[in-house]
Simulated assay, not measured.
Amino acid sequence: MDEEVIPILHVEDAAAAVAWYERLGFAKQWEHVFAPGLPAFVEVARGGVRLFLSEHQGDARPDTLVYLRVRDVESLASEFGVRVKDAPWAREIELRDPDGNRLRIGTPTEGHV
């Protein structure tokens, strides 16, 4: 097993959040609910990148910022209809998921990989 960090993002509706993250190229891996009607806890993954999406109160706070490095930020910018901005370290976009979590997504520029 490789060691890793997995950010946990708070979501109000896990199913809606999963659908939104699928637009970013993530796929649902699993979902856990202790009993019907209780909050869901879901893992989504895109290659080796994983996120936990939690409906549980107190697991995370809204307005969290997660940085994702991707190979092709241009395709994601096109999918979401946003403009790519140049930073000294990457070409980037910034999105907010339906729950207000912020995602800064970038393709590193040469020398910053």
Score class of each variant (00 low, 15 high):
Met1His: 14
Met1Asp: 05
Asp2Phe: 02
Glu4Phe: 14
Val5Thr: 11
Val5Pro: 00
Val5Ala: 07
Val5Arg: 13
Val5Ile: 13
Pro7Tyr: 08
Pro7Gln: 13
Ile8Asp: 01
Leu9Ser: 08
Glu12Tyr: 13
Ala14Asn: 02
Ala14Leu: 05
Ala16Asn: 06
Ala16Lys: 14
Ala17Trp: 15
Ala19Thr: 01
Ala19Cys: 10
Trp20Pro: 11
Trp20Thr: 05
Glu22Cys: 14
Leu24Met: 15
Leu24Glu: 04
Leu24Cys: 07
Ala27Ile: 07
Trp30Gln: 09
Trp30Leu: 10
His32Ile: 11
Phe34Asp: 14
Ala35Tyr: 15
Pro36Cys: 11
Gly37Tyr: 15
Gly37Leu: 14
Leu38Gly: 12
Leu38Thr: 14
Pro39Tyr: 06
Ala40Cys: 10
Val42Ala: 09
Glu43Ile: 05
Val44Thr: 02
Val44Asp: 00
Val44Ile: 13
Arg46Leu: 03
Arg46Phe: 00
Gly47Pro: 10
Gly47Gln: 06
Gly48Lys: 11
Val49Tyr: 03
Arg50Ser: 11
Phe52Asn: 09
Phe52Asp: 04
Phe52His: 15
Phe52Leu: 13
Ser54Arg: 00
Ser54Asn: 04
Gly58Phe: 03
Gly58His: 06
Asp59Phe: 15
Ala60Asn: 08
Ala60Thr: 08
Pro62Cys: 12
Pro62Tyr: 11
Asp63Phe: 15
Leu65His: 09
Leu65Asp: 04
Leu65Val: 09
Leu65Arg: 06
Val66His: 02
Val66Arg: 01
Tyr67Ala: 07
Leu68Gly: 02
Leu68Ile: 03
Arg71Ala: 11
Asp72Ala: 08
Ser75Pro: 00
Ser75His: 05
Ala77Asn: 06
Phe80Asn: 11
Gly81Ser: 10
Val82Ser: 13
Val82Gly: 13
Val82Asn: 12
Lys85Ala: 08
Lys85Tyr: 10
Asp86Pro: 01
Asp86Gly: 02
Asp86Gln: 11
Pro88Ser: 05
Trp89Leu: 10
Ala90Leu: 00
Ala90Asn: 04
Arg91Ala: 05
Arg91Trp: 07
Glu92Pro: 01
Glu92Tyr: 05
Ile93Val: 06
Glu94Lys: 11
Glu94Trp: 00
Glu94Gln: 13
Leu95Thr: 03
Pro98Ile: 06
Gly100Ala: 04
Gly100Gln: 07
Asn101Trp: 02
Asn101Phe: 03
Asn101Ile: 09
Arg102Phe: 03
Arg104Asn: 10
Arg104Trp: 02
Ile105Lys: 12
Gly106Arg: 01
Thr107Trp: 05
Thr107Lys: 10
Pro108Trp: 06
Gly111Asp: 14
Gly111Leu: 02
His112Glu: 09
His112Leu: 08
Val113Asn: 06
Val113Met: 06
